[in-house]
Design a protein around this nucleic acid. Structure first.
Length: 817
DNA sequence: CTGTTAGAGTTTTTT
DNA sequence: ACTCTAACAG
């Protein structure tokens, strides 16, 4: 009965479009295509592709054509007669999934590629969970809580239990729960697990298991799953319902997994359960690129594979096709410092290429400046497009300075990560209403908008609602729907306000049955009052919010239209929510066409490649992160992370570090990363050593009478801008960008006296008589300053090399006094 | 209950 | 520097 239902929801739309005749007709053509693509593989790759007799592990070094092997293997399997809807291809990121789909589509056509089960673990198994939700006590249109929903739920539980949120740091608790889930430990098991309980007791957090229990129960009442639940509940589904497991075992005749080194236990178990009978699994991974252990990923999943799949055949891909020899060798020399790894010899037969460059900068500002200059320069000298450049950093927070520097140079860039569209307040509000329309039990959504726009339901009332709901193990929505029955102690005025809110949601739910999805979305925005709220005045913020809401509605329309094209009968709002809740980085198709430099974290760059790569902020406490200093294991992960970063580069790789940088509103200085010393000097150009040590540098800056650090630097940037009027107050020019930063609005007055004889530089103020130490020329005294603008030149009398003219924007020096 | 403000803390990476 | 929270006045 139920299996039949699974069949319908899961495969019917696919089956319909499969025409055996069509399949046969194209077979001939396909064979020719197969010849072509087999020829384009090397021996190792071809063997890995053609081996289909049993379980297979492909250890694929960076740039060795891993994705290529996977896509060709899928093409080959299709060639062998596997129907596309019986192939399961799993990846970790949406980006990887999309790329794989695209590449398969290029080989076998969009039609076929669309029918594959290809996607991230989370998206694929959320689909399977939706189809079988009733089996585990969930509604089929369950809500997916994102990280912030889950965090806010944890916060409120901690509050309700009256625990101190300093000992029970919500994010820590969240991480612990997440790890438990990824290890498939449910609350009861957690409470029984002596080791865990002991650990919590030792860290003075004995009630974690209680928070976990309540958390899980509340998700259940709210009809919500968090990201980890998607995997945990899939495992529960398979464990408790062998018929369902069997169904999917039969359905997926071949399972392929990319980036296996990043699987956590929950994922690993799903794969091995599904693969058990037929043993037709092919997993690809590189232990050297395992960078997600903070999320529960475990390299040992790779190693344990041969136990679970006896006869596991191992292939190694060691030839790197991406990068020059210098880059590969430099990366190898780095990763060789790690103890834990599977031995392999990655090599390149491309040209030797340039050495990896290491550049030292005085500050994060200068670092940005150097990188943007290099990009401008190299674009000319190497004939590259902006698209060929990437700037990679360890943390998202680093992007700002870089953005600013690129903007100053008019270099177009595209930035991945950071605040995504769906995290903006107005979008989250709108989506909360969408979510409530689909699932009014969704507690996080309800809490978000029950008083937005303001309707007089404040914290007191909300607390009462929450208390009533939880004492009955029920949802807030149920209490609102029946305040009398739940003994809600509020006055009549409040009761009326609650009634108004309930009526609103009921009305939206009623509309949901009548209207098509785009219309419904629009109605929700209007009726909820969101639109009224952001149309109340015409401030730039509100206009931008309106634009964002319009964009969201466009997104709904577009999504529905796309689905219609793909032959889906109708698209519900719930479908839209399901889609966006797992979408993080929206690589908007319209933007990818434009020629722009890419900015992203190293994590986000995995699987990508660029001709020219800059890795910035290669400093102690940043890369490796200060958080990872506790254990060698974590340091090794950071090292792998840098390995990943370096191996993104095809032609040139440049590492930069800044001796001081702004962090949390303060200048901090840190030495270059220990990893720089790990690199074999044969493949690396190290920076010219400056005699001046950075700490002293920083100290002298801080001695400036005004804490004008930042304004000074800003002014330096302003001076990069060409054609500034010969203003007597060079430090007060407003920056052109529309950024609302205080830098612009708080011009520093203290520099009135500045004349052309004083200029601000990365290293500080320079005037005639300033004693400096230049990176190449050594010590010298400034004897003249010309032109304060873009082309500012200083003349320096050096002790050893005589008089030199330096172009300020390129010169590298420190100020001694 | 609402809106403002002063104060504290600040986690690395992602589905 | 920035954001979130707690406290307070209206």
């Amino acid at each position: 009965m139920i299996l039949k239902k699974i069949d319908n929801t899961q495969t019917k739309p696919r089956l319909v479009s499969i025409n055996p005749l069509h399949y046969l007709c194209t077979k001939q053509r396909k064979r020719k295509v197969e010849q072509d693509f087999l020829n384009s593989l090397n021996d190792q790759q071809r063997e890995a592709v053609l081996y289909t007799d049993g379980p297979e592990l492909v250890i694929a070094g960076a740039g060795s054509g891993k994705t290529r092997v996977l896509t060709y293997k899928i093409a080959h399997l299709l060639q062998m007669g596997y129907p596309p809807y019986r192939l399961l291809a799993l990846t970790f990121t949406n980006k990887a999934a999309n790329e794989m789909k695209e590449r398969i589509a290029a080989l076998v056509g969009t039609e076929t590629a669309q029918r594959l089960w290809a996607g991230t673990f989370h998206s694929i198994f959320s689909r399977i969970l939706r189809a079988n939700a009733d089996r585990i006590g969930y509604r089929h249109d369950f809500t997916i809580y994102d990280a912030s929903d889950s965090l806010s739920l944890i916060k409120s539980i901690i509050r309700e239990l009256q625990l101190d949120d300093k000992t029970y740091k919500p994010t820590t608790v969240q991480a612990i729960i997440s790890h438990a889930k990824n290890a498939l430990i449910e609350p009861q098991a957690y409470a029984r697990n002596r080791e865990l309980i002991e650990m919590d007791t030792r860290s003075k957090r004995p009630l974690i298991h209680e928070i976990y229990r309540i958390y899980r129960q509340r998700c259940s009442v709210s009809g919500a799953m968090d990201f980890d639940d998607l995997l945990l509940n899939t495992n529960i589904l398979f464990r408790d319902h062998p018929d369902v497991l069997q169904h999917y075992r039969d359905l997926f005749a071949y399972i392929l997994v990319d980036e296996y080194q990043d699987t956590n236990f929950a994922q690993h178990l799903i794969v091995s359960q599904l693969g058990k009978d037929h043993n037709h699994i092919c997993v690809v991974g590189d232990d050297a690129q395992s960078i997600y252990s903070f999320r529960g990923a475990n390299i040992h999943n790779i190693l344990g594979l041969s136990k679970e799949f006896p006869g596991l055949k191992i292939f190694k891909l060691e030839r790197n096709y991406r990068s020059t020899q210098n880059i590969v060798n430099a990366a190898n020399s780095l990763i060789a410092k790690n103890k834990e790894q599977i031995p392999k010899q990655v090599f390149s037969e491309k040209e030797q290429g340039n050495k990896v460059q290491v550049i030292s900068a005085y500050s994060d500002f200068e670092e940005g400046f150097i990188v943007s200059n290099r990009i401008a320069e190299m674009r000319i000298t190497t004939h590259c497009d902006y698209n060929d450049f990437a700037v990679l950093y360890r943390t998202n927070a680093q992007s700002r300075v870089l953005e600013e520097a690129l903007r100053k140079r008019n270099i177009p860039y595209r930035i991945y990560g950071g605040m995504s569209f769906y995290q903006r307040k107005e979008i989250k509000d709108a989506i909360a209403y969408f979510r409530l329309t689909i699932n009014p039990d969704d507690e996080e959504a309800l809490k978000r908008v029950i008083n937005y726009p303001a309707r007089g339901i404040g914290n007191t009332t909300l607390s009462k609602l929450i208390e009533r709901a939880h004492s009955q193990e029920s949802s807030i929505w149920n209490v609102i729907s029946d305040p009398i029955g739940y003994n809600l102690a509020v006055n009549n005025g409040t009761l009326n306000k609650l009634k108004t809110f309930k009526d609103l949601i009921d009305e939206l739910r009623y509309e949901a049955d009548k209207k098509n999805t785009p219309e419904l979305a629009e109605t929700i925005i209007k009726r909820s009052g969101i639109w009224g709220e952001i149309s109340s005045d015409r401030t730039p913020e509100n206009i931008s919010r309106q634009e964002n809401i319009e964009e969201l509605l466009n997104g709904v329309r577009e999504f529905c239209a796309l689905r219609e094209e793909a032959g889906e009968e109708q698209t519900s709002l719930s479908d839209f929510l399901a889609e966006i809740s797992l979408a993080t980085d929206q690589d908007n198709g319209d933007e990818t066409e434009q020629d722009k430099v890419t900015l992203m974290t190293v994590h986000a760059s995995k699987g990508l490649e660029f001709k020219q790569v800059f890795i910035v902020g290669v400093e102690e406490d940043l890369f490796p992160s200060a958080m990872s200093k506790n254990s060698e294991r974590e340091i090794e992960e950071e090292r792998r992370l840098l390995y990943v970063a370096i191996t993104r580069a095809e032609e040139n790789c440049t590492l930069t570090y800044a001796l001081s940088r702004y962090r949390n509103g303060q200048t901090v200085s840190s030495p270059p990363s220990r990893f720089i010393k790990d690199l074999d000097s044969r493949y690396v150009d190290m920076p010219v050593q400056t005699k001046q040590e950075s700490p002293r540098e920083t100290i002298s800056w801080n001695r400036f009478p005004f804490d004008a650090e930042r304004p000074r630097k800003t002014s330096r940037w302003n001076e990069e801008d060409t054609d500034r009027t010969p203003a007597p107050r060079p430090f007060t020019a407003p920056s052109p960008g529309k950024r609302l930063t205080k830098i612009d609005s708080k011009p520093t007055g203290e520099t009135h006296s500045t004349t052309q004889s004083t200029v601000a530089t990365a290293a500080g103020q320079v005037e005639i008589g300033t004693f400096i130490c230049h990176a190449r020329f050594g010590n010298g005294t400034v004897t003249a300053i010309e032109d304060t603008g873009d082309n500012c030149k200083i003349t320096v009398e050096f002790e050893n090399v005589g008089r030199k003219q330096l172009l300020l924007k390129f010169a590298k020096f420190t100020i001694i006094e």
